[in-house]
């Protein structure tokens, strides 16, 4: 080996460090601006048709199934919620505000007793125009839900466009949801 390539070999570890340091800085930057979340799991359904499912309706409310999402003819926000879930209470005002803006919001009561759901809606307001009951969590499995609340945006052709895990905040709605609503209206 000639002396120059030997010298280069000694620079190898330094190069590795430079690449690693750059990657680390980039990831930290992305973490700070929210585009990288080490715990976030992207939905595989994005840009795919919503899964098929059929559920019983909540008493006193119209229900829905997978097919209804296609025939709705308008973008629909699907919200998985439960009366036992604290972040669901936190996002209730945001959902009500979205409903006032004329957005169709359909609720899926996840692993909840019918009367508990009714009490929850009476107490925190009902933003949903249709409510289905997923007592066993089967529809949630089809959607890939791993914790409530989770919210999906389905466009008017029945294609999933967006998923949010956790409570919706005004910031999330303004930054992520509104541009998509404008795009798929």
């Amino acid at each position: 080996m000639n002396p120059i390539s030997r010298r280069l070999m000694f620079l190898g570890p330094l190069g590795l460090l430079a690449v690693g340091g750059g990657a680390g800085a980039l990831l930290l930057h992305r973490m700070a601006d929210g585009s990288f979340d080490p715990r976030g799991v992207p939905s595989v359904l994005i840009d795919k048709p919503a899964p098929k499912f059929s559920l019983a309706p909540q008493a006193g409310h119209p229900g829905f199934d997978g097919a209804a999402l296609v025939t709705a003819g308008t973008p629909v926000l699907i919200n998985f919620f439960a009366s036992w879930c604290l972040p669901c209470i936190a996002e209730a005002p945001q959902l009500l505000a979205l409903q006032k803006r004329g957005l169709q919001i359909w609720g899926v009561a996840y692993k909840d007793r019918e009367e508990s759901t009714a009490r929850f809606l009476a107490q925190h307001g009902n933003p949903f125009s249709r409510i289905a009951r997923d007592a066993e969590g089967n529809a949630a499995l089809e959607f890939g839900v791993y914790g409530v609340p989770e919210t999906y945006l389905i466009d008017k052709t029945g294609i999933v466009r967006w998923r949010w895990v956790g409570a919706l905040s005004d910031n999330v709605i303004a930054r992520a949801l509104d541009p998509l609503l404008a795009k798929y209206a």
Partner: peptide, 21 residues
């Protein structure tokens, strides 16, 4: 921590590349 890390490791590796041969 990243800056500290790059200073400590980078410094020693520069020295390594320079002196180890």
């Amino acid at each position: 921590i990243l800056v500290l890390l790059l200073a400590v490791i980078g410094g020693s590796l520069i020295l390594f590349a320079w002196r180890a041969p």
